[in-house]
Design a protein around this nucleic acid. Structure first.
Lengths: 121, 121
DNA sequence: CCGATAATTCGACTAAAGTCGAATATATTG
DNA sequence: CAATATATTCGACTTTAGTCGAATTATCGG
């Protein structure tokens, strides 16, 4: 079965270690953190940490770059926004007002080119 | 390892059938749809469909109610909003969610080239 | 009660995720 | 180049997710 970008992103976040890692990167901002620092903070062995960082990178939620001998990971905020938009899309058929606890505030409508149906590795 | 509510919710959405099902329910609104109708729309055998609806119900994203001899499933919009808020929490070190659309000052690559304001971690 | 409809549970199976030590690659420094 | 720091890949393993036919429970109309 074909795995869509949105499912990849959700699957990448659907693990304690990776969600903690992602939230750590969201909190940190564009500067990001090195793999070593992350492994230390999350108390995860290096080889396991690699497994999880790669899951996030493959899903497009986290970007990787090299600085010296370290690999730095940082959250991709646009990807997260795309995901959020996708989840709340067409809420209640977008015409009705019946969404009791308020469907969603206004969010960037970048879903078109985002997580919707794009086909990529 | 303890599985937090957020991870349960993300895991519940991290599957093609369940994401399609959830989005179908989001689009449908509070009235919801019966298991049979859902199975028909998603082209999933009844026993498999049950497996997936239960995953969403267990995660708190979908509510179940009986009407006659049918079981109706409907999205829980408050749960989705909670999840979205949780994902964007503490964005860029700020204590609010208000940065959600704006929390995209620059991607790490751009930041590394000095195209954006640098923040120390 | 009976027969039909609606959906779930059960069971057996296959596929995929997750873990982590040891070996390996990559980059820096002297 | 050699020694060191940083991180990944590999391999072997355990656990969990997912699939779906067949049997089972629940409900309705007569």
């Amino acid at each position: 079965m074909r795995t869509t970008p949105a499912v990849k992103a959700l699957g990448a976040l659907a693990h304690e270690h990776r969600l903690a890692l992602y939230r750590l990167l969201v909190e940190t901002g564009p500067d990001g953190l090195s793999a070593g620092v992350i492994a230390d903070r999350l108390r995860v062995p290096p080889s396991s940490l690699t497994f999880h960082t790669q899951a996030l990178v493959r899903a497009g939620l986290v970007a990787q770059r090299r600085v010296g001998r370290q690999l730095i990971y940082a959250a991709d905020f646009a990807a997260m926004n795309d995901l959020v938009v996708y989840l709340t899309e067409n809420c209640c058929g977008q015409g009705k007002v019946a969404c009791t606890p308020a469907c969603n505030p206004a969010l960037p409508s970048a879903a078109a080119r985002g997580l919707a149906k794009r086909r990529s590795a």
